[in-house]
């Protein structure tokens, strides 16, 4: 794929500050203030030679697999997983036209013509640390955008005064999902694409489709692992910054704390640490997000973030099943490996 196609795809998918910037810097590119300040310099390079372009494409593909995802874990025997991989390596990609754009994107008018497309098998990527089956889909979603009240004042009759106005825009997105099978592990991870500006049900069709795929390939009905035990584990672990926490205490009130983006860990927050000392073991967490800093070989740092989005119903109710984890700001497979290592004990 040419460099401008790679850049378009990266721009479309990767959060700028925490991911795209780091990917580009990690590849040795000069990064300006935002995309519009960065791309002209890269274009002017013409000389992004074949080797550099290939490295950039590899970085994009790793991000397609690992970046902005909703995760579900499925246990399976190693034998069955190896068999699944062997079959996938022999399979041809789907003939659907969407597959031909990998790892790129399509403009919305072209996607609109196709309509919704369920996940189509695209290719398999083998690495030292695991293998990824990549799928591509197309899905519509609604995006909420805040509008300035002044911008519609002229067209609204009467004396209506608004404090804020939310607009709804219908979008259609190219969706890259993956099934990641870590080397030597006895589970597979379904990574459903989950952009930051979509609703919480966006990844559901991908999860349903890929669970069906796994069940068919493994010849048994698979069920997503319960990750709820990991909530307490992550909360109690000393590493990483605790950036979100939902919990209840003995008085049955439900509390939700969130550290502002880019700021300190809640573990260091005086309000929380004083409170948690006071209530001790009666603090029961149900929702937790942790962010880690992972040093890259270039000296830069990635900041993968994992959210286990439980609700208080997981504690109050009978059903303690939490099957989803949300993975944000993932740069590459190294970040994915880190996140998986935090959950593996409870899978």
């Amino acid at each position: 794929m040419d460099v401008s196609g790679i850049m378009d795809s990266l721009r479309y998918r990767a959060p700028w500050q925490k991911v795209a910037r780091v990917i580009l810097k990690n590849q040795g590119f000069h990064v300006g203030q935002g995309w519009d300040d960065t791309l002209p310099d890269i274009d002017a390079l013409h000389a992004v030679g074949a080797a550099d372009a290939a490295k950039l494409e590899d970085a994009l593909i790793e991000h397609l697999i690992a970046g902005e995802k909703s995760l579900q874990f499925y246990s399976a025997s190693r034998e069955n997983l190896d068999w699944l991989l062997a079959t996938a390596r022999k399979s041809s990609p789907s003939k659907h036209e969407l597959v031909s754009i990998f790892p790129g994107i399509l403009p919305e008018p072209a996607l609109a013509v196709m309509g919704d497309v369920p996940p189509k098998f695209c290719k398999i990527i083998d690495t030292d640390i695991g293998s990824a089956l990549i799928f591509v889909a197309s899905r519509a979603y609604q995006k909420r955008v805040k509008l300035s009240p002044d911008s519609i004042k002229a067209s609204v009759a009467g004396d209506l005064e608004f404090d804020s106005i939310i607009g709804i825009i219908n979008h259609r997105a190219v969706v890259y999902d993956a099934i990641w099978i870590p080397a030597d592990a006895e589970f597979a991870v379904v990574l459903a694409d989950y952009p930051t500006d979509v609703t919480t049900d966006f990844p559901v069709p991908s999860h349903l489709a890929l669970r069906k795929f796994l069940s068919k390939q493994l010849k048994e009905d698979v069920e997503a692992s319960n990750l709820f035990e990991s909530v307490a584990t992550l909360y109690g672990a000393p590493d990483g910054d605790l950036v979100e926490l939902g919990f209840i205490t003995d008085d049955d009130s439900v509390k939700h704390l969130k550290a502002r983006q880019g700021k300190k860990s809640l573990r260091k927050d005086s309000y929380h640490s004083a409170g948690s000392k006071e209530v001790g073991e009666s603090l029961q967490p149900f929702r937790v997000a942790v962010r880690w800093g992972r040093k890259l070989s270039s000296g830069l740092t990635s900041h993968p973030e994992l959210l286990l989005p439980g609700t208080s119903r997981h504690i109050f109710g009978v059903n303690h099943l939490l099957t989803e984890a949300v993975f944000r700001n993932g740069l590459n497979l190294g970040d994915l490996g880190l996140i998986i290592s935090k959950l593996a004990a409870n899978i």
Binding site: R11, P15, W16, K18, A20, G34, W35
Partner: peptide
């Protein structure tokens, strides 16, 4: 001045 949206990498209007 200007501001680049940390999420999208685009300059923020107004």
């Amino acid at each position: 001045g200007f501001l680049v949206n940390p999420r999208t990498g685009d300059r923020v209007q107004n």
